[in-house]
Design a protein around this nucleic acid. Sequence first.
RNA 1: GCCCCCGUGGCCGAGUGGACUUAGGCAACGGACUUCUAAUCCGUACCACGCAGGUUCGAAUCCUGCCGGGGGCGCCA
Length: 586
Amino acid sequence: MPDVASVLAQRLQAAFDTVAPGADPVLRPSDRADFQANGALALARRLGRPPREIADAIAAAAQLDDVCERVEVSGPGFVNLVLSTPFVERSVREMAVDSRLGVERTLAPERVVVTYSHPNVAKEMHVGHLRSTVIGDALCRMLGHLGHDVVRENHIGDWGTPFGMLIEHLLDVGEEAAITKLSVGDLTGFYQAARASFDGDDEFKDRSRRRVVLLQRGDAETLRMWRVLVDHSISYFDEVYEKLGVLLTDDDIKGESFYNPMLPQVVKDLDAAGLLVEDAGALCVFPPGFTNREGGPLPLIVQKSDGGFGYAATDLACIRHRVDVVGATRMLYVVGAPQAQHLEMCFAVSRMAGWLPSGVEAVHVPFGSVLGTDHRMLRTRAGTSVKLVDLLDEAVARAAEAMAERGRDAALSSEEQRSVAHALGMGAIKYADLSTDRVRDYVFDWDRMLSFEGDTGPYLQYAHARIRSIFRRATEPAGAEPEPGGERAERGSVIVLRAPEERALGLSLIGYSAAIRAAVEELSPSKLCAYLYSLATTFTTFYERCPVLRAPDETTRLSRLALAETTALVLSEGLGLLGIEAPERM
RNA sequence: GCCCCCGUGGCCGAGUGGACUUAGGCAACGGACUUCUAAUCCGUACCACGCAGGUUCGAAUCCUGCCGGGGGCGCCA
């Protein structure tokens, strides 16, 4: 089931081809019509003809009778398109009975590795991990929905020199005490205590260094203690992920330790390829185009002068593994913007070494920082970074408070209150993060995201819950079964669009598939957010003006019920693709 | 010093070559509740595209320079 924009694009392309083969119709949504094609203007110079004349020719050539009720040339050469209401109606009906709500699977599925979240063992998760986790999760869900084969990867920091001091600290405090501390989530306390010993105690420092060597040699007892630290950290991460409601599981963990055994081969093969240069004792690759402070070549340090491997080695091993073993055709790095240069260098070196063939795409998906309302990096009053769990818990507490203020505590069971407060709190945080352009820094403002007014997660959740409540009040038993298919098939076919608000809602609904496509194409969940918000406002306008249960006649009533139901399905599925729950009531 | 990202009204923010005299939201003001959940809707008002040049029939969008903010620039990840 092709979506409306594709149908128009196709027809217009044919018309443009008659005037100038291959010319882009430049189809856009319009505020003067439903859509507009701007392509004629761009052709004016190329063809040496007045743009209006070209637009006229295109409008005349376009086969649009069955889909448009008006095709007009206006202004300097815009082609305005107003869809015919029967066509909109037909499209909504098809969508309403389609189990995928008109979203077709991709014809070119890829195996996409998405790497995101990546917390460090024995270190607290903070807001910096929030964006990566939330954005990565949404991208995985959207890509998966379009039929791509998504391989999630959580590249946790579970290896390296800090483990010497962490293990020694574990020995000092005793395993029991260490485990207790880690399982209550006081990772920061544990890490800082270890750090303090390391900085203030030379004997401890020596022990730590020896411990690193033991770890790297694979000493059994050292590895066992390392495992204790890793396992308890992971179970703590799992708690956070469960709270957040993201897809990541233990199976997705491929930490630095996983790639560690592959590092010597990375060095060997780079050397064999003649790419390795020894510089100041370190083994480096100098990809062209990168310069240091003095304007000289900038190295990617693969092996440090002390013989240890740099993180670049791990990242290179990763790329090889994903291509050779995982079979990735695409890899997405949901990693903060500051690492752009490092990743570019890794990609460049991988290409030089032939590890990243031309058919495989590696993309950095950067994002900006989370700022406090003072527009500086979000920190606690003490100046430390904010614990992610604290943030999540506060969101839930604030949501519960807001529900109580509105008297919802009386309307819902205490169990339901808890789950709804949780959904609202997470929805608020996630939507605030996802709805803004990824690469910009964004201001973390409780009052804004949890105000439950305007362009927020809770507003969308509310819009959805309100629709559901219509069905609880409707007498049809069918209304209580929101699942696609079956009886829905019959109900969808009764949709008629008469009132302008009905037509507007229908038009908005059939834009769903294009919105998802755009969001995936641009790796930009904010595109889907914007669509859902616009659908929700279009719906509420419809809802204010067009009584559903009290519709003037049975035909209208059934039609409006079907429209409402389809809207609810799009909202809950769309929010779901963003990793946001849509409660049945709130 | 070099490189990258960002700069849109009081605030947040979409738009990256087309009708833009810039969407939407928040805050403000005025209306609509014995409701299909008002966490809503309708309306009003609001001196915004950092600055200066350039390219173009047309620039918030492309180019150059500058200003402001953030980040990066060899053994941390």
